[in-house]
Amino acid sequence: MPPPIALIYGAGPGTGAAIARALAPTHALLLMSRSLPQSISRLALDDLPQDRVYAHKYTGAASFGEAIKAAQERWPGAQVKVGVCHAGVPFQPGPFLNKSTEDFKECLDSAVQAWDFSQAVIPALLAANGGTLIITGATMSRRAGANFAAMAGASFARRALAQSLAKEFGAQGVHVAHVVVDGLIATAHVDGMMGKAEPGSRLEPSDIAEVYLDIIKQKPSAWTQELDIRPSKEKW
């Protein structure tokens, strides 16, 4: 039997790649982003079996279904058992009166993408007799700070989507979880902007990935719908 497929949208060189690495021993990896497959080398997954990795470009709503179809042709008989929507909300902070409607719409598009992703993944999970769908959130998924009006609405919408889907599809074997990532993630990009940080003040991508793996392994009698994770020194 071929391994089950894990679809990761927002597969970048930080947390997305870490989630892929955590799932690699048990799943075939279907990776998506706007820059894939051209940027696959940035994910540093060369040590993984390359016949278990397939990268597909995100070009809009239809590309999710196209990627699933292509992956199942690549791995005949394989079923999608995991979907992770990790692509974040565009970074658009700033005073409300300085932001435009277009800024707001750009942020809201991340909620539309989570919607499109879920509409493609849930039928595949149902066809596989269940599986896990995880949507990544942020601190502003639950509380909106000053100067984050353009971003917070989209984050709230993604959280609401995850909650609604969990209630609609849980009894059919689809575990939908929303993960609030509360704090800065220790990536090369963040380190380059803000400098190195002391231990315990930033989230490590590999540790985030372990949390996602724990969610995927949960038994149906004790599913998590939402959890929040933060480094030990984060103020909250």
Rank of each mutant, 00 (worst) to 15 (best):
F104A: 12
L30M: 04
E73G: 13
G170P: 01
T59K: 03
I40L: 14
V174T: 06
D109P: 00
A17H: 10
D109V: 03
N147A: 05
A22K: 07
A144S: 13
A152Y: 02
T101G: 13
V176N: 02
A6F: 11
F91P: 02
A67F: 09
F169A: 00
A162F: 10
Y54C: 15
G153Y: 02
G130E: 00
G200C: 06
I185K: 01
S33P: 00
A138Y: 07
S141F: 06
S232H: 10
G192P: 04
M151L: 02
P3R: 07
Q92M: 14
T136E: 02
Q172P: 01
A124E: 11
D214V: 00
G130A: 04
V174P: 08
V176K: 04
G131V: 08
L125W: 01
K81R: 14
N129G: 05
A197H: 08
K81A: 06
L43T: 07
A87Q: 11
P199V: 11
A67Q: 11
P76V: 00
P4R: 05
R142E: 13
D207T: 10
A177N: 01
G145T: 12
T139H: 11
R142P: 03
I19S: 09
V211I: 15
T139W: 14
S110Q: 07
E198F: 06
P220F: 07
R142G: 13
I216R: 06
P2T: 15
H189Q: 12
S110P: 12
K69E: 13
A17P: 14
L97I: 14
R143Y: 10
Q172V: 06
R34S: 11
G192I: 07
L184G: 09
S232I: 15
Q218G: 09
G183Q: 01
S100D: 10
I19T: 08
V84Y: 09
A149S: 15
E168Y: 00
H178I: 04
V180Q: 14
G145I: 10
G12T: 12
G65N: 14
A128T: 12
G170F: 03
A44S: 13
I8R: 05
T139Q: 14
H27Y: 14
A160Q: 08
I134G: 03
P93R: 00
G195D: 01
H27S: 12
F91N: 13
I185F: 03
T139E: 13
